[in-house]
């Protein structure tokens, strides 16, 4: 994939909603996670505004997935505060929420897209049930409505509605990933966490998925925290990015600035290691 500066991101970037756009949705300060003596991530602070895509880049083992899991309440941090602005406008410390509240947040206002769709899908029920699960979890009890909603979302992620009763097992890798995205978006979340969403897909499927993601993010005004080792993905999707090394954030700023004019020697190394075709 080319890393040319003119990637047509302007449309996506201009789509942040006006209301409350000046207040961050997620604010993290001094977050650290230690695995015994080893460092997962150390002293990370960040903020994500509504409608903004933040990429966390870095090599394997740099702590990006640890950081993402700490943000998404999937892993309890050793220290630090993660605050989230709820739909009613109140700012809550995520690790002071009850488990019930955390899980409710997780399946209504948030989404989590796993690298491997098998982790994020229910493989033994149909595509329609996968999409409808979150709706049923929040109390939808009308089969006909659930089904038409599932059809709508499948078409939105470019899966033919005729495949609604097929198991995800019968889907290709790219379709599974798109199904996982539909399943996450069905409750109208405001914040999506993505862990290498294009990992393991071939290049042409990757390109289509990125295109779809960019469109959905722009249309729905989603805030996204995306973890990737692929700088091209960061370039295409994100507004801002952070570069991590050894568990610490070494550089952050606008994506185009970092990729075109990296300051830190490590970032320079990272950017220059991209294979050119």
């Amino acid at each position: 994939m080319s890393l040319a500066p003119e990637t047509g991101l302007d449309t996506a970037k201009g789509a942040a909603p006006a209301a409350d756009a000046d207040l961050p949705l997620l604010r993290v300060s001094g977050l650290s996670k230690f695995y015994g003596d080893r460092v997962g991530c150390r002293d990370v602070s960040l903020a994500v505004w509504p409608g903004e895509v933040l990429a966390i880049a870095g090599e394997s083992g740099s702590g990006k997935t640890t950081l993402l899991n700490c943000l998404a309440t999937r892993l309890t941090p050793t220290s630090g505060v993660v605050e989230y602005r709820m739909r009613d406008g109140s700012v809550r410390d995520l690790y002071r929420l009850s488990e019930a509240e955390q899980r409710l947040l997780m399946r209504t206002d948030w989404g989590f897209v796993h690298q491997n769709p098998i982790d994020g899908l229910r493989m033994n029920v149909s595509a329609g049930a996968n999409v409808g699960e979150r709706l049923m979890a929040v109390g939808a009890r009308h089969y006909g409505k659930l089904r038409s909603e599932a059809e709508r979302w499948l078409e939105r992620v470019e899966i033919p509605a005729s495949r609604i009763d097929d198991d995800p097992r019968a889907f290709s890798g790219g379709m599974r990933q798109r199904l996982q995205i539909a399943r996450n978006l069905v409750t109208g979340p405001r914040l999506i966490f993505m862990d290498e969403p294009t990992g393991g897909l071939d290049v042409s499927v990757q390109a289509r998925l990125l295109d779809l993601l960019r469109q959905l993010v722009a249309d729905l005004g989603l805030a996204v925290v995306i973890v990737t080792h692929d700088l091209a993905v960061a370039r295409l999707l994100s507004h801002r990015m952070m570069v991590m090394k050894g568990g610490e954030v070494i550089e952050e700023g606008l994506t185009d600035r970092i990729l075109d004019d990296p300051r830190e020697p490590y970032t320079q190394l990272l950017v220059s290691s991209i294979l050119q075709v």
């Binding site: 899980r103 229910r122 029920v125 149909s126 329609g128 049930a129 409808g132 699960e133 979150r134 049923m136 979890a137 929040v138 109390g139 009890r141 089969y143 659930l146 089904r147 609604i164 009763d165």
Partner: peptide
């Protein structure tokens, strides 16, 4: 959290 129970019933109707 009993949404999952309805997923099973949904599958029944779908099939």
């Amino acid at each position: 959290e009993y949404g999952l129970m309805h997923v099973k019933l949904y599958e029944d109707i779908a099939r």
